[in-house]
């Protein structure tokens, strides 16, 4: 072992983003397949309406698939974007700025996504324009 090599002073080696990208990827294999199957192939050719979506989302499993997919896909997508944005910098301050910005964007995107589901889950949209 090269005992002279130290981790970065910030203590952030990037292990967690790397590991969580793989964990979220494994989860997405289930969520995306479930989502595509439910929306496109399960009732092939049947008309999708507000009412059919509403009736489907009465069941907890479908809420789990839609909300779970939303959370995991937003994390995976923005964490992937983060790795693209920081790959040419080793400045911890710049990396932190990117990470913070993407967390704010991610939380906002999750809330926005839940708002899309909200009329079906709560009977009325969270936000109105």
């Amino acid at each position: 072992m090269a005992s002279s090599s130290h981790p970065p002073a910030s203590g952030r080696s990037g292990t967690w983003p790397w590991l969580l990208q793989r964990v979220s990827a494994a989860l997405l294999l289930f969520f995306v397949m479930a989502h595509l199957w439910i929306e496109h192939f399960m009732h092939l050719g049947a008309r999708i309406t507000y009412r059919t979506v509403l009736e489907r989302l009465v069941h907890g499993f479908y809420v789990f698939v839609d909300a779970g997919l939303l959370g995991v896909v937003v994390f995976h997508g923005l964490n992937g974007l983060r790795s693209v944005l920081v790959e040419n910098t080793n400045d911890p301050a710049a990396v932190r700025a990117v990470t913070t910005t993407l967390w704010v964007l991610g939380v906002a995107t999750f809330v926005f996504g839940m708002d899309v589901l909200s009329p079906f889950l709560f009977g009325h949209p969270w936000f109105r324009l």
């Binding site: 309406t49 896909v73 937003v74 997508g77 923005l78 995107t109």
Partner: peptide, 26 residues
């Protein structure tokens, strides 16, 4: 990156109608 861009497109398209009017527009 294309799928991430699509995700935003997907959410915006599916929300706009419900936001502005209701189930008929959905």
């Amino acid at each position: 990156l294309l799928i991430l861009a699509y995700l935003y497109f997907h959410l915006i398209v599916l929300s706009s109608d419900v936001w502005f009017k209701g189930s008929a527009d959905f």
